[in-house]
């Protein structure tokens, strides 16, 4: 196993507030690395900082090359897809337009997307803003999976979804992770247990634990100390 994404000493600010203090982590070139921590410890900000959506400094290397000075769109075009927290679909555009906009390659993976999200095909002409939360999450995931990516950055994909939809999203994530390595922010530890192989735990903008997913989840004390919940 080697690191596809290597982050060292990452710091980021939002509105004058330091939200990422000093994060160092590696994302393996296969499988799912889960980024865990309580609310507000800087998980989403870490992902945004990696992508350059918020101002950052520190070292970020993707496949051995530095990307910490690149603009967001350049990073994404190297094959780093982003599924943001809260979906962020374009509400005034149709489902179809959302997907067209996200397409970066001549031959997008429409077959895969249609297979994973049959519902979206029926709703192609519907405005994304009128979809349910779960459907919007599918659009958001579909936008990423349309292209052949080398890394997926997925931020709280199951947030606010019903148990049935959580199961469905988990299935999609597992399928996606078979092809493409993933850095996943996830609060639902059951989902983490099902699909993640490594975990990185943040607290106060810093990494406080790193290791194999199951080892971490099975250590009640550790989970309780870092996440404040029972595994």
């Amino acid at each position: 196993m080697s690191a596809l994404l290597h982050v060292e000493g990452l710091r980021a600010r939002v509105g004058g507030q330091q939200v990422v203090e000093d994060v160092s982590l590696d994302v393996a070139d296969t499988g799912v690395t889960a980024l865990l921590g309580r609310n507000g410890v800087g998980k989403s900000s870490t992902i945004k900082a990696i992508l350059g959506i918020i101002e950052r400094d520190g070292t970020v290397e993707f496949d051995g090359r530095p990307i910490d000075r690149l603009r967001t769109d350049r990073i994404v075009r190297q094959g780093v897809a982003y599924v943001p927290e809260d979906r962020e679909v374009f509400a005034s555009l149709t489902v179809e337009e959302n997907l067209t906009l996200a397409t970066r390659q001549a031959a997008p993976n429409r077959g895969l997307v249609d297979e994973l999200f049959p519902e979206l095909r029926e709703r192609a002409r519907q405005r994304a803003g009128t979809l349910s939360g779960g459907q919007q999450q599918m659009v958001s995931l579909a936008r990423a999976l349309l292209n052949d990516n080398r890394l997926l950055l997925v931020d709280e994909p199951t947030k606010g979804l019903s148990p049935r939809l959580v199961g469905e999203v988990t299935r999609v994530l597992r399928t996606a992770a078979e092809q493409t390595p993933m850095l996943l922010v996830e609060q639902n530890l059951q989902v983490v247990r099902e699909i993640a192989q490594d975990v990185v735990v943040l607290s106060g903008g810093r990494v406080v634990h790193r290791g194999a997913a199951l080892e971490f989840l099975d250590d009640q004390d550790l989970v309780h100390r870092h996440l404040g919940v029972a595994a």
């Binding site: 992508l51 959506i53 603009r71 967001t72 769109d73 350049r74 994404v76 075009r77 982003y82 943001p84 962020e88 374009f90 509400a91 005034s92 555009l93 337009e97 067209t100 906009l101 996200a102 970066r104 936008r143």
Partner: peptide, 21 residues
Amino acid sequence: GLVIRAGVENRTMVTALGIDV
């Protein structure tokens, strides 16, 4: 036109889809 409409709504997300806005 599509990029512009999307950008008016959420420019950050347009760049996060790999588009040079």
